[in-house]
Computed example of a mutant assay.
Amino acid sequence: MDNVPETTIVDTPRVWCDGAGDIRNGPNYRSAALGHPRVYMQIDEKGYVDCGYCDRRFVLKGGPAERGINELGVGDLPAEEGVSPA
């Protein structure tokens, strides 16, 4: 899995990013002056789009990318008893 600094779940396939926090006045709020120019992006069949400036990932709610966010990976599974990890 690649290193994406921040993921935002969105309701529409057309999104914009200015590098500020995900919700105005929310816990992750950063002034737009500390961000980048506002850019508009379109989520495609993958179910997500990454901002070219700050790498924030926008994931379409209910899309294929959201379904994969909480799935377990091989490294997340507990080791079987008596079997050493690979």
Score class of each variant (00 low, 15 high):
residue 59 V to Q: 02
residue 57 R to S: 07
residue 45 E to S: 10
residue 79 A to M: 10
residue 19 G to R: 11
residue 75 G to W: 15
residue 18 D to V: 02
residue 78 P to R: 15
residue 17 C to I: 03
residue 64 P to R: 13
residue 7 T to S: 02
residue 4 V to S: 03
residue 44 D to M: 03
residue 81 E to M: 07
residue 22 D to A: 15
residue 61 K to R: 14
residue 50 D to C: 13
residue 18 D to I: 02
residue 23 I to D: 09
residue 85 P to N: 07
residue 23 I to M: 15
residue 47 G to N: 01
residue 74 V to R: 12
residue 10 V to I: 12
residue 31 S to Y: 06
residue 18 D to Q: 08
residue 51 C to Q: 01
residue 20 A to L: 07
residue 80 E to L: 14
residue 77 L to W: 14
residue 47 G to L: 00
residue 55 D to W: 10
residue 39 V to L: 01
residue 68 G to K: 11
residue 36 H to G: 10
residue 83 V to T: 03
residue 29 Y to S: 09
residue 48 Y to C: 04
residue 30 R to L: 14
residue 49 V to Q: 03
residue 50 D to E: 07
residue 39 V to N: 00
residue 41 M to N: 01
residue 33 A to H: 15
residue 54 C to H: 08
residue 25 N to L: 15
residue 31 S to T: 07
residue 34 L to F: 12
residue 67 R to P: 03
residue 32 A to M: 06
residue 55 D to R: 15
residue 46 K to Q: 09
residue 82 G to I: 07
residue 69 I to C: 04
residue 4 V to I: 09
residue 21 G to L: 06
residue 42 Q to C: 02
residue 46 K to A: 14
residue 24 R to I: 09
residue 46 K to C: 05
residue 30 R to Q: 11
residue 39 V to P: 00
residue 32 A to Y: 03
residue 40 Y to V: 13
residue 8 T to Y: 10
residue 16 W to R: 13
residue 71 E to N: 09
residue 5 P to W: 00
residue 34 L to D: 13
residue 1 M to G: 10
residue 1 M to F: 06
residue 65 A to K: 06
residue 77 L to H: 12
residue 63 G to I: 13
residue 6 E to Y: 05
residue 3 N to A: 04
residue 65 A to I: 04
residue 38 R to L: 13
residue 40 Y to M: 05
residue 54 C to G: 05
residue 16 W to T: 13
residue 17 C to F: 02
residue 22 D to L: 10
residue 75 G to P: 07
residue 42 Q to K: 08
residue 9 I to V: 09
residue 81 E to D: 13
residue 11 D to V: 09
residue 70 N to P: 04
residue 54 C to L: 08
residue 27 P to M: 11
residue 57 R to L: 11
residue 68 G to F: 02
residue 59 V to I: 03
residue 45 E to N: 06
residue 14 R to K: 11
residue 69 I to R: 10
residue 62 G to C: 13
residue 32 A to H: 06
residue 55 D to V: 08
residue 16 W to P: 01
residue 75 G to N: 15
residue 36 H to F: 07
residue 56 R to G: 06
residue 73 G to A: 15
residue 6 E to K: 08
residue 27 P to C: 08
residue 39 V to F: 00
residue 17 C to M: 05
residue 53 Y to R: 04
residue 82 G to S: 07
residue 33 A to G: 13
residue 45 E to A: 10
residue 85 P to A: 12
residue 73 G to C: 14
residue 6 E to I: 04
residue 74 V to T: 11
residue 59 V to W: 01
residue 63 G to E: 09
residue 16 W to K: 11
residue 16 W to D: 12
residue 62 G to K: 11
residue 52 G to P: 00
residue 22 D to N: 12
residue 85 P to H: 05
residue 7 T to I: 11
residue 38 R to N: 10
residue 9 I to S: 01
residue 11 D to R: 10
residue 33 A to M: 14
residue 1 M to P: 02
residue 46 K to W: 03
residue 55 D to K: 14
residue 39 V to C: 01
residue 16 W to M: 10
residue 81 E to W: 05
residue 16 W to N: 14
residue 27 P to Y: 10
residue 41 M to T: 00
residue 55 D to C: 08
residue 66 E to W: 09
residue 75 G to H: 15
residue 22 D to R: 08
residue 39 V to Q: 00
